[in-house]
């Protein structure tokens, strides 16, 4: 958890932080006191969050002794009666511990076989990796670099990797990369070619997302160099961890921003992080990921911004969370999703 990037709202939502405010113990005290000493610049945010939580002192009325005793008496009377009628019922409790253990072992074995199988299959396939709508895939490249391919995306990889050539892949869509470090020569370089730009890295973790109108590169760790596919070719941008570069195709515009990089690759862990994201953006993302057509007929609703998380493993839970969290009605029919107030 990188608390340095937290806003006041983030703090007030964090369970460790809440524990410190509501029922502090030695552990939370030690942690937050030290942390604040090290990061005095976060004092204002922490105080705002703390006050917000403390302002919610909900009042309750104590139960009277009479009520407490009355209920207890009634309960114990019923328990007594129940005991007497059931005294001769034989207890049948079997423990399936042994079976359960065997089942776990079997599952582990099958899982291992499954992984081995998957690896074998990948190794013998022509190296074009595609994902369908709603599917993500984790790939291990010949150099042991890891790629998580998001839904509706394609990654092309050479079948033979030369020992002293740059490692190269071609991406349509979105993918998250964890690139291994290779020492010396040309093989130290790892290049991702996309419609708008080329990402060139050493060893690092980053996310590349081609959207309709722009391409986003977010760097989690390490260093990368971007070569933009602009008319004035050869334009280069160096990126630092925690930065996102957005390249807009038509306007040839480049924006650089500080972001929470992990949020941009959270889809690899099956959720999306919303941070003042408009409903229209979420709709576009659902369309790109799951292949549905999303309709929001109310333009005011489309512009409403949401913060929070959405689980992405199943479209149904995603829609349910969306509906419950943001008080909207979501209807799914065939290939269309309608969002209304």
């Amino acid at each position: 958890m990188d608390y340095l990037l937290f806003t006041a709202t983030d703090f007030s939502l964090d369970e460790h932080f809440q524990r410190w405010v509501l029922s502090p113990d030695e552990e939370t005290h030690a942690f937050w006191d030290t942390w604040l000493l090290q990061h005095p610049e976060k004092t204002a945010d922490v105080e705002t969050a703390r006050r917000l939580i403390q302002s919610l002192r909900i009042g309750t009325e104590p139960l009277s002794e009479t009520q407490r005793h009355r209920m207890h008496r009634n309960i114990m009377t019923a328990v007594q009666e129940n005991e007497e009628t059931e005294a001769d019922v034989v207890e049948l409790r079997t423990t399936n511990a042994v079976f359960r253990r065997w089942r776990v072992a079997a599952a582990v074995l099958l899982g291992t076989l499954g992984l081995a199988g998957t690896w074998y299959w990948y190794a013998n396939r022509p190296l074009v990796y595609q994902t369908a709508y709603g599917e993500t895939r984790t790939l291990v490249l010949p150099d042991q670099s890891k790629v998580v391919l998001n839904a509706n995306s394609e990654l092309r990889v050479r079948k033979q990797w030369q020992a002293d050539a740059p490692r190269e892949v071609w991406l349509d869509g979105e993918a998250y990369f964890e690139v291994t470090e290779q020492l010396g020569g040309q093989a130290a370089k790892f290049k991702v070619y996309t419609r708008d730009l080329t990402v060139e890295v050493l060893g690092t973790r980053f996310n590349v997302a081609e959207r309709d109108k722009h391409t986003d590169v977010t760097l989690n760790e390490g260093k990368v160099r971007l070569n933009l596919n602009t008319e004035t070719a050869g334009r280069e941008i160096m990126m630092q961890p925690g930065e996102m570069v957005r390249f807009s195709e038509n306007g040839q515009r480049v924006e650089k921003a500080k972001v929470k990089a992990e949020d941009h690759s959270s889809w690899t862990k099956n959720y999306w992080v919303l941070d003042n994201t408009t409903l229209a953006d979420i709709a576009a993302r659902i369309e790109a990921t799951y292949g549905y057509q999303v309709e929001i007929n109310d333009s005011e609703l489309a512009g409403e911004t949401l913060s929070g998380v959405l689980p992405t493993q199943q479209i149904d839970s995603l829609l349910e969370v969306l509906a419950i969290s943001y008080d909207v009605k979501v209807r799914r029919e065939n290939t269309t999703i309608a969002i209304t107030r």
Binding site: L13, S307, G308, V309, L310, P311, V321, I324, S325, Y326
Partner: peptide, 12 residues
């Protein structure tokens, strides 16, 4: 609820 819903509801 889903855990995400609980979190989002608190956030909102």
């Amino acid at each position: 609820l889903e855990v995400a819903s609980a979190y989002n509801l608190v956030s909102k």
